[in-house]
Simulated assay, not measured.
Amino acid sequence: MTDYPKPERYSDGEWEARVSLAAAYRMVARLGLDDLIYNHISMRVPGTSDQFLINPYGLLFSEITASSLVKINTRGEVIEETEHTVNKAAFVIHAAVHKSSETAHCVLHTHSDASTAVSGQPDGLLPLSQFAMRFYNRQGFHDYEGVAIDEAEQQRIVAHLGDNPVMLMRNHGILTVGRTAGEAFMLLYYFERAAKIQLQMQAACASGVPLVIPDHDVCEKAARQFWELKGDILIPGEREWPALMRDLDRVDPGYRA
């Protein structure tokens, strides 16, 4: 693997956050869950309460590197000299979540197909698969208000997300929140898998095959098993993320630049 030394202007903590965030962008792109130059993933700058890193507007997710990420504050001010700008909707959505929670270190928003498709269904993600059980009664809903460029929408985004790790933005996309980039990414991955399965089951249902939904107590038990880390279950990303980064280093190490 090519060696990409840390620039002197960054602390060890910030550089580690930059590398992890750039990796998340590349992984989302590899799975085909990106939307050209749109969508965004942000990471709080370690040791700060009002600064976060986000993608430069105009770069594909597959182009983003650790050093190209833009540092802004929760007022939307760029606080490090750069040739790049930041998407207005990115600031509105991500600043709202970062300001509202000390543990919202990484905030991920995409328009991924299956998640967007279920965002337009009244109950969102249904407990139709084990992938989906993780999110049973743990998904927020935010009604569509147009392109998210109105800062007044921030308070509603925060209220509708609540304590949930995932929020469906109706007719728009999905937002996940993690303590790490790995957690936010894996929540997207598992939700998208569950949403694809739901759409496949619903297509079969339309052909006359009935849906089987476990009862509430079983669904809640499964959700608690995930979130209370029962058995050998760990926080999303704790096992998967190191393996995914090793794979990324083999095939696309340029994210570390």
Rank of each mutant, 00 (worst) to 15 (best):
Y4K: 10
E8S: 14
W15L: 00
A17M: 12
V19Q: 11
S20A: 13
A24L: 10
M27A: 08
V28F: 10
L31D: 10
L31E: 14
L33F: 14
Y38P: 03
Y38G: 05
N39K: 04
H40N: 14
I41R: 01
I41M: 00
M43W: 09
P46L: 14
G47L: 03
S49V: 11
L53K: 02
L59T: 05
F61I: 11
S62E: 15
S68Q: 10
K71D: 11
K71Y: 05
N73L: 02
H84G: 00
N87Q: 09
A96W: 06
H98G: 04
K99H: 08
A104G: 04
H105F: 06
C106E: 00
A117I: 15
Q121E: 15
D123C: 06
D123L: 13
S129I: 07
Q130R: 06
R138T: 01
G140W: 03
V147E: 05
A148R: 11
I149W: 02
Q155T: 15
I157Q: 05
V158S: 04
D163W: 03
P165L: 00
R170D: 07
H172V: 07
L175R: 02
G178F: 02
R179N: 03
A181G: 14
G182Q: 01
Y189N: 14
Y190D: 11
E192I: 07
R193S: 09
A194K: 02
K196T: 12
I197P: 09
Q198R: 00
A206K: 04
G208A: 08
V209I: 15
L211K: 14
V212W: 02
D215W: 10
E228F: 07
E228Q: 09
G231S: 13
G231F: 06
I233D: 06
I235E: 09
I235A: 10
W241N: 00
L244Y: 04
D249E: 03
R250Q: 12
R250V: 07
R250C: 07
